[in-house]
Design a binder for these strands. Structure first.
Length: 425
RNA sequence: GCGAUCGUAGCUCAGUUGGUUAGAGCGCCGGUUUGUGGUACCGGAGGUCGCGGGUUCGAACCCCGUCGAUCGCCCCA
């Protein structure tokens, strides 16, 4: 006897009510994206490593230490996708999707990041994703965010707010970054160890440090607003006024920066409100949906300058907020009380299922306990098929939940073939 | 990568200061009762106590390592 292999760390097997919640998130996303006319796209789960390293940025945590990379048999370095955006951008360029631009794309599926697992964080996790490529107007940002907001409402998620910021255009962002480095460098010795490191690698991140030692200096740090060009400022104003017009509630988050290099202008996250029920369910993983504008990304992959904006949301995190969804009860349970009726029962369930009624057959195990077993599934209708003592067929039809779909049709179809005594219906 | 807590039947958990063949409930399988019924009773299968070392006359219990889970840091969805 060999040992049973274990699942890979950070992967999960999802079943039952949790799987239903997962499916509910995906189904709702599919429904909403069609309302907004986002088109479905499917991309490979792995790409050449450079697709991600060039697009996301070599110095980011994702690229520098979280990628699942390996050499294939031809010696080429490949990587399991850690996010959707880079792969979508590559697909856009390699397939000439410019011809469809501006194009609204939606996808969902598994992603891989080598991280320490914890609540709401896995090594193989799943996201839904929406992107608008080839649209440089603030209207695109507004539509994308309205869709995200709409989706959360359709999912019934409460207590989550859109946190919105602008990073300005490339020049604004660089000027701001330089000012921040200068500001924090003066007090470098008093910063936390983490932030001293961030000062070199990713100074913007110091702004949302949780360490008290850093927060003292964050308050009077240079503000992005002071570095915005007129164009960048007008862009952001157009986004916020558009959101107001669309009825999307938002809050300005001056210190919100996104980790990846490619973001420009709009950056946003949907975050549970402090102390809300949603915040409690998520633990320390607070962001459920995040994204922004990435006007520089296509060029980093060798394409023509192409404005784009997008977001992604963790399906597992959304599913946690949605809560476990009960699996639907079976509509009709058919019990074979006597093995001689097995073929009749098979005929009955196949007829009912073809009518579009969910049906379960109980014909195994002790005949005596089949009825009880069927009872426990709490069916809408319980049909038993038995033999009388004289050997003639006998069946009954017990309704426990009158409102199941197609009940009258099902009863009519059933009784056209098998008699049911009046006293059992 | 760092820190904390935790790993005993399929599931939820007991297991007294280290002391005989490791238990319960639920679930599963079978039987009896009931006999148009989600009942009750009886029985059964199922555990190398995560794994590997060590201490001890003796380890589920103490120590070390390892794997995994959970929670937090970092980072992110």
């Amino acid at each position: 006897m060999s040992k049973t292999p274990q699942a890979i760390r950070g992967t999960q097997d999802i079943f039952g009510a949790d799987a239903e919640a997962f499916a509910f998130v995906v189904e709702t996303f599919e429904r909403v994206r069609k309302l907004y006319r986002f088109r479905r796209a499917e991309m490979p789960v792995f790409e050449k490593t450079e697709v991600f390293s060039r697009a996301i940025g070599e110095t980011t945590d994702v690229v520098s230490k979280e990628m699942y990379s390996f050499d294939d048999r031809g010696g080429e370095s490949l990587t399991l996708r850690p996010e959707f955006t880079a792969g979508i951008a590559r697909a856009f360029l390699s397939n000439g999707w410019q011809q469809h631009a501006p194009v609204k794309l939606a996808t969902h599926g598994p992603l891989f990041r080598y991280e320490r697992p914890q609540k709401g964080r896995y090594r193989q996790f799943h996201q839904i994703d929406a992107e608008i490529i080839g649209a440089g107007e603030p209207q695109a940002d507004v539509e994308l965010l309205a869709m995200a907001d709409h989706l959360l409402k359709e999912l019934g998620i409460e207590g989550v707010t859109l946190h919105l910021n602008t990073l300005g255009d490339g020049d604004s962002r660089e000027a701001w970054r330089a000012a921040l480095v200068e500001h924090f460098r003066e007090v470098k010795d008093e910063l936390s160890e983490d932030s001293q490191e961030r000062l070199e690698k990713n100074p913007l991140r110091i702004l949302d440090s949780k360490d008290r030692r850093d927060q003292r200096f964050v308050a009077d740090a240079p503000k992005i607003d002071d570095f915005l060009t007129d164009e960048a400022k007008a862009f952001f104003d157009a986004v916020t006024s558009g959101l107001d017009a669309a009825g999307v509630k938002w809050t300005r988050a001056e210190s919100l920066v996104r980790g990846l290099d490619y973001y420009r202008h709009t950056a946003f996250e949907f975050i549970p409100d402090e102390g809300s029920e949603a915040a409690g369910k998520l633990g320390s993983q607070s962001t459920i949906l995040g994204g922004g504008r990435y006007d520089g990304l296509m060029e980093s992959l060798g394409g023509a300058p192409t404005p784009a904006v997008g977001w992604a949301a963790g399906i597992e995190r959304l599913a946690m907020l949605v809560g476990a969804q009960e699996e639907k009860r079976v509509e009709i349970a058919v019990v074979v009380e006597n093995s001689a009726r097995e073929h009749d029962a098979i005929a009955a369930v196949s007829m009912l299922r073809r009518m579009g009624i969910s049906t379960e057959l109980f014909a195994t195990g002790s005949p005596r306990k089949r009825y009880d077993k069927a009872r426990k599934t709490d069916p809408g209708v319980l049909v038993s098929m038995d033999l009388r003592e004289d050997g003639t067929a006998r069946q009954n039809w017990v309704v426990t939940l009158p409102e199941i779909t197609l009940q009258d049709e099902a009863f009519a179809a059933f009784t056209s073939r098998w008699d049911i005594p009046d006293d059992t219906y």
